[in-house]
């Protein structure tokens, strides 16, 4: 039972990550491989604030979001000068730079040694100790992010995003500020990614840079693509599927060492298959949203 709860918490974290990426990648058409970087920035910000300054959780979350947002703003102004495949390459570069900072800035992050001893969360004096309580807290955040994104993407801003991901020049001709909308969507996605970062840091109580690598970015992007671009419920289902996949493989009798690789082979394979579905472009397949 404890293990099942652990998996459900992980599902919650990946749901938040993939939905925040869905805002920029799905709705805004900005496919980014830097999402694990923002997740990591959130986790490190939360961990360092808690360990060194005993900052309470509810203060650390907005602080981490602001930090991640400022970084995303800088990144967006640079990376959004490019589009499509060059944008992906650019975000890939940013992901590697962020990872490199986490891994080598010894005085701040302790590099590969990681940050141990991150305290648990206490809300208004109540310790969130058990797995049940933590799951509940995670679900609250999942629901909050879900509703926020649902509202945002259903608003006029969401329509601008959808329009510009299909045809930027046309959107511009309607008098919409394409560049600004993209910067906002990208920054908002990155800020939301900081939330699961803080939760993860408190939950695992130890973080090191290996949790925030380029592979993690590819994994989050895979969830978004497998679940369907612009499809928020799809991201929920895909996150659950991919987190439970190794357990399913173990259940059918696959050894531990192979199950981990097999999971990646399966999601790589599904990613390829999805590209056949999306081969005419991500825009022409309108999935129902909002």
């Amino acid at each position: 039972m404890e293990y099942l709860l652990h998996l459900l918490i992980l599902v919650g974290i990946y749901v938040m990550l993939s939905q925040s990426l869905n805002l920029s990648a799905g709705f805004g058409g900005m496919i980014s491989l830097a999402h694990a970087g923002f997740y990591g920035v959130g986790a490190y910000a939360g961990a360092l604030l808690a360990v060194h300054y005993q900052v309470p959780f509810l203060v650390a979350v907005p602080a981490a979001m602001v930090l991640s947002g400022v970084l995303a703003l800088v990144v967006a102004t640079i990376a959004l000068r490019t589009i499509d495949d060059y944008f992906i390459i650019c975000t890939l570069g940013i992901q590697v730079v962020v990872f490199s900072l986490m891994n080598n800035w010894m005085s701040l992050t302790r590099g590969p040694l990681g940050i141990p001893g991150i305290p648990g969360i206490s809300l208004f004096g109540v310790e969130v100790g058990s797995k049940w309580a933590f799951l509940l807290l995670t679900l609250v955040f999942v629901a909050a992010i879900f509703l926020f994104l649902k509202k945002l993407t259903g608003s006029s801003f969401g329509r601008v995003l959808r329009a510009l991901s299909e045809d930027e020049i046309f959107t511009q001709s309607l008098g919409k500020n394409v560049y600004l909308s993209k910067v906002i969507a990208f920054t908002a996605g990155a800020m939301l990614a900081a939330i699961p970062g803080v939760l993860y840091a408190h939950y695992i109580s130890y973080i090191d840079p290996t949790s925030f690598t380029i592979d993690e970015s590819i994994f989050i992007l895979s969830i978004v693509i497998i679940g369907g671009m612009r499809n928020l419920w799809g991201s929920v289902i895909a996150a659950a599927f991919l987190v439970f996949l190794p357990e399913i493989l173990r259940f059918v009798g696959m050894p531990n060492a192979i199950a981990a690789n097999m999971r990646q082979i399966i999601y790589g394979g599904i990613l390829i298959a999805m590209m056949f579905r999306y081969s005419k472009g991500f825009e022409t397949h309108h999935t129902k949203t909002a």
Binding site: D85, G268, M275
Partner: peptide, 14 residues
């Protein structure tokens, strides 16, 4: 080109 690139990313993972 972008779709091909993502397919290629999937192939790399596999």
């Amino acid at each position: 080109a972008m779709v091909l690139m993502i397919a290629s990313l999937g192939l790399y993972v596999v």
